[in-house]
Each structure stands twice: as structure tokens, then as C-alpha cells.
């Protein structure tokens, strides 16, 4: 018994000694890290101070660009790229192009880092090349759409989703399936940032029955953000024949933005959907594409069991120019009065 206890205590003392060493190592690690970070930050401040003035001058007077390269020693080239990247994130258009030209001579090593074993290194390289290295490094960035890490692929897609690179819209759509876990709204917004030139590819994606359903829904959302009038017929067709909730809701939202009175029949059918999400969006669309004969149907929906449907109906009445109905309700009592008063007081329709 005592032999066992003594042995256990000996082992325990080893553990405690090990922990003491661990604690001291942690402390030394932290202090060392603090010292190294302080040195690194000091160096970075010194470099930034040296580069700030010539870079800002080059942004206002591009003829001085060559002078910038004189203050970049070979060992600090990648630091300079990082410095330029921080500026490039905050500017657009011509200024970003100038920053890209300033960084251009130093970007080649990043082309190799796109193949690094570490996904963080690849992410950084793709982001830098996407921001500063297009179109010279287009191959690397497009290639990164196929990267094993979805994050790297997303950074590549985000880099390519710009108005000046609209030709890559189809590439991005092709690889969109990889991002199934990502927020749909995020992806739609990314695609819409390409601008109207992306619309044909998006319309094709929405219309394609062989395309993945959620990709079609994302395409519909992007078309809604672009307010693409040519997508209305496709959206109406989707509303007529498809049954997937996500796709239907997106197509109805698209019709709310670009639909025409000719689409009213398919929208009316969906106003009776048992799914409150579909009913809500159908009513909003009906407020846009419907006529006077649809007002009773919308008014009836003010009493829907779902508050979401009711609020969409009230907003639909407002969009249809029938605020008089809401005003009448607002003067009465009960929950519908509160609903009417709320919608009448809203500045922006959500």
C-alpha cells in the first residue's frame, strides 16, 4: 500500500516538475513573443514611414511612380507589397490600378506561393494577386478556384467577381457548387458585384434544369440585385413549374423586382401556397405585378396566421399604392391596426 503511494507521489512530483517547466516555458514564450512583435512592429513602422509619402505622391501624380521603386531594398519587396495591399483594399478604379502597377515588379514570388502546402499562405497569395496582380496573374487566380481549400477558392472567386473581369462570371458559376455551405446571400452579392455583364450567365444558370437547385436560387438572387429585366420571364417559368422552396422564394423575389403584369397568373397561384415563406414573397410580387383585382386577395392576407405573411401583404398594399386601406385599418383597433401603422411609418420597404 505504502509502496504504491510513494511510487505515485514520485510520479506526481515528476508531473508537477514538468508543469513548472511548462509554466516557465509559457512565460518565456510570451515574453519572447512580445519582444519579437515589438521589433517587427518597429521595423514595419519605419518602412511604412519611408514608403507612405512616395506612394501617396504616385497616387496623385503617376509620373513619380519610378521614384517609389528607388526606396525599396530587395529584402523588403514583399513587405512593400503588403504595404500597397493595405492601401489597395481601401480604394477602387484608377487608384487601385496605380497601386497594382507599383506592386507589379514584386509579385512573381507570390505566384509560387499559390502552390504552398499551407492554406493560409495560399489564401494570402491569392488575395494579393487578385487585388494587385490582375490581369497578369489571372491564370493563378482562376486556377485557385480549384484549390482544395474552399476558403482559398472563395478568395479567388471574390477577386474575380469584379466589373473589370466580367468574363470570369461563367468560371465562378461553374465552381459555385464548391461553396454550398456558404451564405447564399453572400454568394449572390458577390456575383452581382460583377455587374450587368454577368447577367447572361446568371440567366442561363437560373433557366438550367440540370443546374444544382441552390445555384439557380443564388443566380436568381444575383439577378434581383442587378434588377435584370430580361430575367423576368425565366423567373416566371421557375415560379410556375418548380417546387423547391429556396428556388421558388428567390424567383418570386426576382419577380417583385422586375416582374410585369403578364406574370401575374403564376404569382397568384403561389399566394395560396401552404408555405408561409412562399406566400409572403408571392404577395410582395403580387403588389408589384398585380392589378386592382388582386387587392382583395392581398387585403385578406393581412389577417394571415403568420405575421410575416401579414407584413408582406401590408407592404404589398403600400407598393400597390393602396395606402388608403392601411390608413383605414390604422384608425381601427387590434393587431391589424398596429401592422398598418407600422408599415405606413416605414421609410424603406424591406
Amino acid at each position: 500500500m505504502f509502496g504504491f503511494r510513494d511510487t505515485a507521489l514520485v510520479y506526481l512530483s515528476y508531473v508537477v516538475a514538468g508543469l513548472l517547466v511548462t509554466a516557465v516555458s509559457f512565460a518565456l514564450f510570451a515574453l519572447n513573443l512580445r519582444a519579437r512583435t515589438a521589433l517587427r512592429e518597429k521595423r514595419w513602422r519605419r518602412l511604412s514611414d519611408r514608403w507612405r509619402a512616395p506612394v501617396l505622391l504616385a497616387l496623385t501624380e503617376p509620373s513619380t511612380m519610378d521614384a517609389v521603386h528607388d526606396v525599396i531594398p530587395p529584402r523588403d519587396r514583399l513587405h512593400f507589397v503588403r504595404f500597397v495591399l493595405e492601401y489597395a483594399q481601401r480604394v477602387r478604379g484608377n487608384e487601385r490600378e496605380i497601386l497594382g502597377r507599383l506592386a507589379k515588379p514584386y509579385l512573381a514570388p507570390l505566384g509560387e506561393r499559390v502552390w504552398s502546402r499551407h492554406s493560409e499562405v495560399r489564401t494570402r497569395a491569392v488575395r494579393t494577386l487578385g487585388m494587385l496582380g490582375l490581369p497578369d496573374h489571372t491564370d493563378e487566380v482562376v486556377g485557385a478556384l480549384d484549390d482544395p481549400s474552399p476558403l482559398v477558392a472563395m478568395i479567388a472567386a471574390k477577386s474575380l467577381a469584379r466589373k473589370e473581369h466580367a468574363e470570369h462570371a461563367a468560371d465562378i458559376l461553374l465552381y459555385l457548387k464548391r461553396f454550398e455551405g456558404w451564405s447564399r446571400n453572400f454568394m449572390a452579392s458577390m456575383l452581382a458585384s460583377i455587374g450587368p455583364d454577368a447577367a447572361p450567365a446568371l440567366r442561363a444558370s437560373l433557366a438550367s434544369e440540370t443546374e444544382v437547385i441552390w445555384v439557380r436560387a443564388v443566380s436568381a438572387e444575383a439577378l434581383r440585385m442587378l434588377r435584370d429585366p430580361y430575367a423576368a420571364d425565366t423567373a416566371a417559368q421557375v415560379v410556375e413549374i418548380e417546387e423547391d422552396r429556396e428556388l421558388l422564394a428567390s424567383a418570386l423575389r426576382l419577380l417583385s423586382e422586375v416582374g410585369r403584369p403578364t406574370h401575374v397568373t403564376v404569382v397568384r397561384v403561389r399566394c395560396a401556397s401552404p408555405d408561409f415563406v412562399i406566400r409572403s414573397h408571392a404577395l410582395t410580387a403580387l403588389g408589384i405585378v398585380g392589378g386592382e383585382e388582386d387587392i382583395p386577395r392581398i387585403e385578406e392576407a393581412l389577417g394571415d396566421e403568420s405575421p410575416w405573411v401579414a407584413i408582406h401583404a401590408a407592404r404589398a398594399l403600400k407598393a400597390a399604392g393602396r395606402e388608403d386601406i392601411l390608413e383605414e385599418l390604422a384608425d381601427a383597433k387590434g393587431p391589424r391596426a398596429l401592422l398598418a401603422r407600422q408599415v405606413l411609418s416605414e421609410e424603406v420597404l424591406r
Binding site: 508543469l19 513548472l20 511548462t22 509554466a23 509559457f26 512565460a27 510570451a30 513573443l33
Partner: peptide, 9 residues
């Protein structure tokens, strides 16, 4: 102590 120091680290 080891745990708290590790948190600071």
C-alpha cells in the same frame, strides 16, 4: 499557475 500562465501566453 501553469494554466493561468498558458492563458496569458
Amino acid at each position: 499557475i501553469a494554466l493561468s500562465v498558458s492563458a496569458v501566453a
